[in-house]
Simulated scan of single mutants.
Amino acid sequence: MPELVLVTGGTGYIAGWCVAELLRRGHDVRTTVRAPGREQAVLDAVSTVADPAGRLDFAVADLTADAGWEAAVKGVDRVLHVASPLGVSATAPDLVTPARDGTLRVLRAATAAGVRRVVMTSAANAASPSSYASEGVTDETLWTDPEDPTLIPYRRAKTLAELAAWEFIREHGGATELTTVLPGAVFGPVLTPDTAGSVGIVARMLSGAMPGVPRIGLEVVDVRDLVDVHLAAMTSPAAAGERFLATGEFVWMAELARFLREGLGERGRQVPTRGLPDFAVRLAARFRDPSLREITPALGRRNRHTTEKAARLLGWRPRPARETVLDCAESLLAHGAVRVPAAQRP
C-alpha cells in the first residue's frame, strides 16, 4: 500500500517540489496550507510536473497556531516538515519564536499520531562556525552557537528550531524518528513564479536590478537534488536520528553571474559583472537598504560544508552549480518571471 506523506507548507518553493516528486514516485500526499482557498495554487503548481488526481489532499494548519495539526497528521506515515514561518528580520524582529514553536507543533502532533519518521528542513547555517571569517570545511557535528551576539536573527532562529526539535524527540519522541536536512542556497527550476523562494536572487540579476555583485559565496544546491535527499532521508533506515548537510558546489556570486552571461547569451546581457566593494555594500545596508544587513556578515566568507555523510549513507550526489543556475534562469524566463527587453529575446 502506498504510504501517506504529509508535506508542510505546500505553497512554498521547496515544499511544492517535494509534493510533486512524492506524487511522481507513487506516494499519496497531504499538504498543509495556511488558510482555505490556497489549495488551487498548489494544484496548479504541482500539475506542471505530476498528476495529483486522487492522490493529493489538503489540511488547513498554520505553524503559528495549534488548530488543524491533529487533523493534518491523521493517518500519516511520514512527515516532511519543510515549512517555516520565517521572514525578513527587518519586518519580523522575533524570528525565533515562530520557527521554534511551529516545529514543536508539528512534532507534538506527529508523535501523538504515531508517525514513523519526521524529516525537518533546517539550514546549513545551523551547522556553521559563528565566525564568518572562518575557513575550511565543516560537517554535521558542528552546531552554530545560538548565543553568539553577532549572529543574524535568521541563523539564530534556524539553529534554535533544530535544537528544540532534537530535544523534543529525545524526551517525547517515542516510536517517532527524526532526521534533519541542512541545505545551502537553494536554486533550480520553479513550478510557478509565485513560489520562487530563494531564486529571487537569480531573477534580480537577470532583470538588471542589481548594480553589481557583492563578494558573497554560496553553496548552491538544486531544489530537485534537495528533494531527492529529503525523500532518501524519509525512508532510509540509516537516516534515523541523523543530520545531513545538503549543500552543493561553492561559488562566488561573480561566478554565478558569469554562468548566466555565458550560458544565456543576449538574454543574460543585463546580468551585472562589476564587483561591489565590501564597504559599498555595508554603506548601502546602513543608509539605503536595510535588507542588505542580512548579507553583510557573509562578505568574503569562505567556510564550506562537506556532504560526505549524505553521499555515504544515502548515495546523494548534487549536480554542478552551473547546471542548476542555468536551469533556474531558463525556468524564470519561461514563466515570464523576468522581463527581458524584446531585443534580447530569442
Score class of each variant (00 low, 15 high):
residue 5 V to R: 02
residue 6 L to H: 00
residue 10 G to T: 00
residue 10 G to Y: 02
residue 11 T to G: 00
residue 13 Y to H: 15
residue 14 I to E: 00
residue 21 E to I: 05
residue 27 H to K: 08
residue 27 H to T: 02
residue 28 D to P: 11
residue 29 V to N: 05
residue 31 T to F: 01
residue 34 R to H: 02
residue 34 R to C: 04
residue 36 P to R: 02
residue 39 E to A: 03
residue 41 A to S: 09
residue 47 S to T: 04
residue 48 T to N: 10
residue 57 D to S: 13
residue 62 D to A: 06
residue 63 L to P: 07
residue 64 T to R: 14
residue 67 A to F: 03
residue 69 W to F: 11
residue 69 W to R: 10
residue 71 A to W: 02
residue 74 K to T: 12
residue 79 V to Q: 07
residue 79 V to F: 03
residue 79 V to P: 06
residue 80 L to C: 06
residue 87 G to Q: 12
residue 89 S to N: 09
residue 89 S to E: 13
residue 90 A to V: 11
residue 91 T to Y: 08
residue 92 A to T: 15
residue 94 D to V: 05
residue 97 T to A: 15
residue 99 A to T: 00
residue 104 L to N: 13
residue 108 R to K: 11
residue 108 R to L: 07
residue 113 A to Y: 07
residue 113 A to F: 07
residue 113 A to N: 07
residue 116 R to E: 15
residue 116 R to K: 15
residue 120 M to V: 13
residue 121 T to E: 06
residue 121 T to C: 09
residue 122 S to L: 13
residue 122 S to Q: 11
residue 129 P to V: 06
residue 129 P to G: 11
residue 133 A to L: 14
residue 140 E to P: 13
residue 143 W to E: 09
residue 144 T to A: 11
residue 151 L to C: 13
residue 151 L to V: 10
residue 151 L to D: 12
residue 154 Y to K: 03
residue 154 Y to A: 03
residue 155 R to A: 14
residue 156 R to I: 00
residue 158 K to T: 00
residue 162 E to Q: 15
residue 162 E to V: 10
residue 163 L to E: 15
residue 164 A to C: 04
residue 166 W to M: 11
residue 166 W to D: 14
residue 166 W to P: 12
residue 167 E to P: 11
residue 169 I to A: 07
residue 170 R to H: 12
residue 171 E to A: 15
residue 173 G to D: 09
residue 174 G to P: 10
residue 177 E to A: 15
residue 177 E to L: 10
residue 183 P to F: 05
residue 183 P to M: 09
residue 184 G to M: 05
residue 184 G to Y: 03
residue 186 V to F: 02
residue 187 F to M: 06
residue 188 G to P: 08
residue 193 P to R: 01
residue 194 D to A: 14
residue 194 D to S: 14
residue 197 G to H: 12
residue 201 I to T: 06
residue 210 M to I: 00
residue 210 M to D: 07
residue 211 P to G: 10
residue 214 P to Q: 03
residue 217 G to D: 07
residue 218 L to C: 03
residue 219 E to T: 13
residue 224 R to A: 09
residue 226 L to N: 07
residue 236 S to F: 05
residue 241 G to F: 08
residue 243 R to G: 13
residue 246 A to L: 05
residue 247 T to N: 08
residue 249 E to V: 07
residue 253 M to P: 08
residue 254 A to P: 09
residue 256 L to W: 01
residue 256 L to Q: 06
residue 258 R to C: 05
residue 260 L to I: 05
residue 262 E to N: 07
residue 265 G to R: 06
residue 266 E to T: 12
residue 270 Q to D: 13
residue 271 V to L: 01
residue 276 L to G: 08
residue 276 L to W: 04
residue 277 P to R: 00
residue 280 A to T: 07
residue 280 A to N: 08
residue 285 A to T: 03
residue 287 F to R: 15
residue 287 F to G: 08
residue 290 P to G: 11
residue 293 R to C: 01
residue 294 E to T: 04
residue 298 A to T: 04
residue 302 R to N: 12
residue 308 E to M: 04
residue 310 A to M: 05
residue 313 L to G: 06
residue 314 L to C: 11
residue 317 R to Y: 01
residue 318 P to E: 02
residue 328 C to Q: 02
residue 329 A to Q: 04
residue 329 A to D: 00
residue 332 L to C: 02
residue 332 L to W: 00
residue 336 G to E: 01
residue 337 A to L: 04
residue 340 V to L: 08
residue 342 A to Q: 12
